[in-house]
């Protein structure tokens, strides 16, 4: 039963994160992150070495801050107009949990509509969450896009 409670809490957290990303609430989303963070979206394959291979995103705190600073400004053309987003999070699995760290895996289906085009993005997210009372903060998040080896257009919204 304790297990179920933990899964519910992780799901609740991931749903909230999804809401913030869908609605471009950059500051609120950034507030979910722990001080020392790693936000990684590998490119070409899921299991690359980021020190030797190029990623789509490999942000530390400073880089993520830059990313959001730019998106909040008025001249990030690729988000003018903004992507309208709606994602469903599912297949949530708690992979490991101790008193401090919870590791969770989940999948998403993300619909993006921009300039009359609808694109469906699919992927798997790996979260390393730090317990903070009844809540969590994100220490690491890795997003394994299903199409990370295919040519893609605009990925300037939050995933």
């Amino acid at each position: 039963m304790e297990d179920l409670q933990l899964i519910r809490a992780v799901e609740r957290f991931l749903y909230r994160e999804a809401d913030l990303m869908d609605s471009h609430r950059y500051d609120d989303w950034f507030a979910l992150w722990d001080e020392e963070l790693r936000y990684w979206v590998p490119c070409n394959a899921d299991d690359i070495d980021p020190a030797r291979q190029v990623s789509l995103i490999y942000d530390n705190r400073g880089q993520l801050e830059d990313r959001l600073y730019r998106l909040k400004g008025r001249h990030a053309h690729a988000q003018r107009p903004r992507s309208r987003l709606m994602r469903a999070i599912s297949n949530v699995i708690v992979e490991s949990a101790d008193s401090e760290i919870v590791k969770a895996r989940s999948q998403f289906v993300l619909g993006e509509v921009r300039l009359d085009r609808q694109i469906v993005w699919l992927g798997r997210s790996l979260h390393t969450l730090v317990r903070r009372g009844d809540n969590f903060m994100i220490r690491e998040k890795t997003v394994l896009l299903l199409n990370n080896d295919a040519p893609m257009g605009n990925l300037t919204f939050l995933i």
């Binding site: 190029v54 990623s55 789509l56 880089q63 990313r67 690729a78 893609m152 257009g153 605009n154 990925l155």
Partner: peptide
């Protein structure tokens, strides 16, 4: 990665 590629600060604005 910071300026080039689909999720960067540069290329997507060029493409747009």
């Amino acid at each position: 990665e910071s300026f080039y590629g689909p999720a960067s600060a540069g290329s997507p604005d060029d493409a747009e």
